[in-house]
Design a binder for these strands. Structure first.
Lengths: 368, 368
DNA sequence: GTTAGCACTCTCGGCCATAGAGTGCTAATC
DNA sequence: GATTAGCACTCTATGGCCGAGAGTGCTAAC
């Protein structure tokens, strides 16, 4: 058990702690009060605001117990209590009553998606925007990409100035483009200059040979091809490889200013590290193993995060898409003092929604 | 003259003010000191640090004159002087000695671009990253887009699950994609289901009919087409129209945390408005008329900006690409207390560089 | 087990005094 | 006539001090 806690500290780490009825309700009240006010909460305030039917003194002793258990902490001797990361954890695991999105919210979100044309980038932007708005946190959405990019279809377009564009549609429906090196092409054309006909021929060849192959598989077949086709195939292989670098791609964020507004980050420089991490491409990769384990929404609270710069924030993330196919991540980032009961269902709903959108326009694995 | 100043307050507004030699060097010194230290600069400090060969008293009287002219200001009676927006303006226009990028910097930047494969999104990202790093400000880069999107080439791809993707290459080389509505297609196929052959035929038709046409022109020809082709043409027209909404598209930013670090924005909430504006799509559109007027780099200092939220920041922006063809913007955003002598040449250099990259892989206007 | 009472602790805001930086003015100097 | 030294003055920033208030922990009574 101990090892398990160590290995995956941010999943059900606090399960074993048994609390009395009273302790539970006090912890819940402290968390909810603190999330709302951002002010350390004292015993008197607590009974006043939550209509607990006991005296402040009783609450105090309960608080002392919770502090001993490491669920609350004390900024200083004569201040109120603040939940610890572990306190939030327990709250999220067993104390919280999720505030599910009501029907109208769901419909409104759905409606917004239906308004947007069916281009996936717009979906992502919209998802980030909705997440940010309805959780008042920073939202992060990555495109759904195959862990292993596969060839779908290519097109070679010649343009007036003799530039050539290679447009590659991946098996998962994403589109990549790259310009072909002109000098290289000149070298390959032994006799006549290369025309659109030649390009069409190459495209047709590759489109029969390559569908559904991964980068190394494409590479392996290059040797069989004529010089021009071989060159294009090489370029395609490179493009596939680049796509393999999951989520190094674009990360769509929104609502960073929401977080900036939170008192814990009022002194902006505190957020600096977080922003830098967010910009770095590899940040989600580090979390990927955790986030894709099991189903559904994952909550990573403060120090549970393996990334140092993120010790003062919580993440609520969910994967969407299909593990073997296109897999994306989406979620929110905010202070540990986060409205979990609201944010978690929202993330969950958006993940299922994106799932739907992805799979209804789903690209099969056996093309042609 | 007066009207002209009003109409374009951020271009050479301060030209007419004549300063004595001494006033000039004092203003220059104040600006440069303040940019460096972010502390209001007093007369003693100034002579010490800049080795002026006069006494503090002399400097004081010069400062008083400059303040009378509205070039400096006083946070309070017994504090040092701070440049006003107008002071910065004069500095930028005539006092500043530009710190041109030296050869090695230029080569390093060029090298980084050569490392990146020729996909334009990566260029933009890289440009933003370089700008942010070498000016320590927030960088903003928009893709170069035609003011008027024109048809280049389309490809229709059928995938295993019968999804159809329409990939549109614009005349300026940008690529757009959209999924075709399946239900609609079913309705259009009177007898047999639509296969790749049919799609190819449609694509071929449009590719001979439409090249270099704008959205309305495409629309006008729809009536001549068979139902399926007409539907696709309609979709294409929509895609062209969407592309016409300049820069509503993606804006690549980087280095926001640099700005967050500046003392004037240490209390993060001050930056909030700026961030919100930055996220909004229309912010550059408002500036577009100004930024494309004349050649080269444009500097917009504090209150010169027509956008209220940006009264406390300076922008240094330049267009790149070609006015009639693909036009993009790039630049930096930082506090008015900005290292102009460094930032301006950097923006200029990156604009010319992007220009080169765009035009060497340039797409002609008369396709086919 | 719960609660009232009480002494104790700690922060926060206001107040004051002081130090220091900087100014503006005037009169002397080059 | 420009420059400078000297000086009185102003304002901020800093630190110490005090009292109010919030909150705790403990103990004894219920």
């Amino acid at each position: 058990m101990a090892e398990e806690q160590k290995a995956q500290p941010h999943t059900r780490g606090a399960r074993r702690i048994e609390l009395t009825e009273r302790q539970q309700s006090v912890l819940r009240a402290v968390v909810e009060d603190y999330v709302l006010t951002a002010v350390p909460v004292g015993s008197k305030m607590l009974v006043d605001r939550h209509g607990l039917r006991v005296s402040p003194a009783t609450v105090r002793s309960a608080m002392a117990e919770l502090e001993f258990l490491g669920l609350l902490s004390h900024p200083h001797t004569s201040a109120g209590r603040v939940p610890s990361d572990l306190g939030y954890r327990l709250y999220v695991e067993s104390l919280m009553r999720e505030a599910a999105l009501d029907r109208t919210d769901q419909l409104m979100i759905r409606h917004q998606f239906s308004q947007v044309q069916l281009t996936s980038n717009e979906w992502l932007r919209l998802a980030a925007s909705i997440l940010a708005a309805s959780t008042s946190s920073a939202a992060v959405v990555t495109p759904a990409r195959s862990r292993r990019a596969r060839y779908g279809h290519i097109q070679l377009v010649e343009l007036a100035d003799r530039s050539r564009l290679c447009v590659l549609v991946l098996a998962d429906g994403n589109v990549e483009q790259r310009r072909l090196d002109r000098a290289m092409l000149e070298r390959l054309s032994t006799d006549a200059p290369i025309g659109q006909d030649d390009l069409d021929l190459v495209a047709a060849t590759l489109n029969t040979e390559m569908p559904n192959l991964s980068a190394p598989q494409v590479r392996r077949r290059i040797s069989r091809l004529a010089p021009l086709a071989a060159h294009v195939a090489e370029v395609v292989a490179q493009m596939l490889e680049e796509s393999d670098e999951v989520s190094v791609e674009e990360i769509f964020t929104d609502g960073i200013s929401n977080v900036l507004e939170q008192p814990e980050f009022a002194h902006g420089s505190k957020l600096r590290g977080v922003l830098d991490v967010l910009r770095r491409s590899d940040f989600l990769e580090q979390l990927l193993p955790v986030l894709t384990r099991g189903e559904g929404v994952h909550v990573i609270i403060g120090h549970e995060n393996t990334i140092d710069a993120m010790h003062e924030v919580s993440l609520i993330f969910a994967p969407y898409g299909e593990p073997d196919h296109a897999l994306g991540l989406l979620g929110v980032l905010g202070p540990t003092r986060m409205p979990y009961p609201r944010a978690i269902p929202t993330v969950r709903y958006l993940a299922t929604l994106m799932n739907e959108l992805i799979t209804t326009t789903h690209y099969g694995e056996t093309h042609d």
